[in-house]
Design a protein around this nucleic acid. Structure first.
Length: 485
RNA sequence: GGCCCUAUCGUCUAGUGGCCUAGGACGUAGCGUUCUCAACGCUAAAACACGGGUUCGAUUCCCGUUAGGGCUACCA
């Protein structure tokens, strides 16, 4: 490990103007992985300079979402506490006013920034004129050389004297990116000394927080030259950039509101495991050198290489997430599944004994896609659903035959009730009947009788889980249903 | 409109001039197992956007076209 690697510092800088969505979560993951990989520091900075749109509720959602994924931050706000962790704080931009003011004054003093007295209306008129002439709209620099305040005017904003130069930077993922700064115009960096704007605040904070690598979404590429110019004006050292491809809708169109505004925590509600989601997010735009698809967090840290991140946007398909979730479910022990399931059961007001639940999970786990669909597939264990008596009948057999078979099964079960109603005992006891009538005509009606469904696990496993009393009740119900028919 | 980014199976991707009759995974289809579903096993269909160069040789390098996407705020 070189000394340079030791000093890696990255940050996630979300603005709490919406929930933590899938895109920010992936940016968080890549930053986190990069930090862990290089034994660096992962900083969480809340960009809440826009007082009107920022909400504590959203900030909370960001904290909770990151925590759920296990992406802990080394420096940043402490949820629920007025203080923070780390030496470069505070980590909310709303609490860093003095710092911005200092640099704003410096820029003003050095005449690299100036007060602009143009009103919004004047600016809009200028804009329309330029558009009308087919020119790209930019600020004309009216107030740039003003020596004093024009009479009757008040300062509206603070602008940066954008040098008319070419700006280029090397993006770790994309290589060289070039811009012509003369098309920018003098950008607004603050509304006033107390109210900095994004491009300025981000540059100041990245410097003050000693950020070495800026890993963020591709939507920031065109902000980068502006920020570099600001850095240079302020004499800040260079930082290394890596712009991640954007996430697209499943049909590869641009990410719609539905996904963009949906909290990551919705996936928790839908019963996905955080480890599966992390794995899924990692594969969205990144791939290891080998063919491995399933990674533990540890493996991800070992394998992760920012240079291997894709350049093109990545559409996310839920099918792969579902598959991953299933894989992770498979790797959990029955006990672990039961543990994660209990809060879900409580939400549905179901409170079976741990022992019973454990048995059900054992039987149903291969059919589970996520925590939520457990109820769809295993609900019949708790309450037999109403079903059509015709469902009991195997293929073209007469209903009367089905009734005879069910009665036969009932007798057999009654006979062995003293013993444990285990799979093996049952299989043995039913062997003769199945031999005589065929497996289909015997097991199909039995399965429907105990589950009430056309798709379920092995009926013998169901019976073992249900126990004698409940099984008997269900078979009797089935017989009555046929009678009523 | 201007500036910028991108382009391999439906999707996520491997691939950095010959190893490619383009590999893997999800999904899809078929078969096997089976009372059903799931799981599992096997098999199949499925892609280098297009047009020019460069080169003995291009998926890979360059240019253009096309198509997506981003930015173009006193939002971040």
């Amino acid at each position: 490990m070189t000394s340079q690697e030791k000093s890696v510092r990255v940050r996630l800088a979300p603005s709490p103007t919406g929930f933590l969505h899938i895109g920010t979560a992936r940016t968080a993951l890549f930053n986190w992985l990069f930090a862990r990989k290089h034994k660096g520091v992962f900083v969480l900075r809340i960009e809440d300079t826009d007082r009107d749109r920022s909400k504590k509720e959203y900030e909370q959602d960001i904290f909770e979402g990151l925590a759920w994924l296990g992406l802990t931050w080394d420096e940043g706000p402490i949820p629920g506490a007025p203080t923070y962790r780390g030496s470069s704080g505070p980590y909310r931009q709303s609490e860093r006013g003095a710092t911005y003011k200092k640099y704003l004054e410096l820029l003003l003093e050095e005449k690299r920034a100036y007060f602009c007295y143009c009103t919004k209306e004047e600016l809009e008129a200028e804009r329309q004129t330029m558009l009308g002439q087919g020119l790209p709209p930019k600020y004309g620099g009216h107030c740039r050389e003003l020596r004093s305040r024009p009479p009757g005017k008040k300062p509206e904003v603070i602008r940066f004297k954008t040098p008319e130069s070419r700006v280029e930077f090397k993006d770790v993922i994309r290589g060289k990116v070039e811009f012509d700064a003369s098309t920018f115009g003098d950008i607004v960096i603050a509304k006033d000394l107390e109210s900095p704007l994004y491009n300025f605040a981000a540059v100041v904070d990245d410097y003050e927080m000693r950020i070495t690598h800026v890993i963020r979404g591709e939507d920031h590429i065109s902000n980068t030259p502006k920020q570099i110019l600001l850095q240079k004006a302020l004499n800040f050292p260079d930082v290394i950039y890596a712009h991640l491809p954007l996430i697209l809708n499943p049909d590869r169109t641009k990410l719609s509101k539905r996904y963009n505004e949906m909290s990551l925590l919705e996936y928790r509600k839908e019963g996905y495991l955080p480890a599966a989601l992390v794995n899924f997010l990692a594969l969205l735009g990144w791939h290891s050198e080998g063919d491995q698809e399933i990674f533990t967090l540890k493996e991800l840290i070992r394998e992760f290489d920012i240079k291997r991140v894709q350049k093109a946007g990545a559409a996310f398909n839920l099918e792969k997430l579902d598959w991953l979730n299933k894989e992770y479910l498979k790797n959990l022990s029955t006990d672990e599944i039961v543990d994660t399931l209990i809060p879900f059961l409580e939400a549905k007001r179901l409170g079976p004994s741990r022992e019973f639940l454990s048995k059900i999970v054992e039987v149903e786990r291969s059919r589970m896609k996520n925590l939520n669909n457990f109820f769809e597939i295993a609900g019949f264990f708790f309450a037999l659903p109403d079903y059509d008596p015709l469902l009991l009948v195997w293929q073209k057999e007469p209903a009367s035959k089905t009734k005879v078979i069910l009665k036969g099964i009932l007798e057999i079960i009654d006979r062995i009730k003293s013993k444990t109603l285990s799979r093996t005992v049952l299989a043995e006891a039913l062997a003769d009947l199945a031999e005589k009538e065929g497996r289909g005509p015997v097991f199909w009606p039995l399965r429907v009788a105990v589950s009430g469904q056309r798709a379920s696990p092995d009926p013998l496993e169901i019976i073992e889980t249900l126990g004698y009393e409940e099984t008997r009740r269900r078979i009797e119900t089935a017989i009555k249903k046929i009678d009523r028919k």
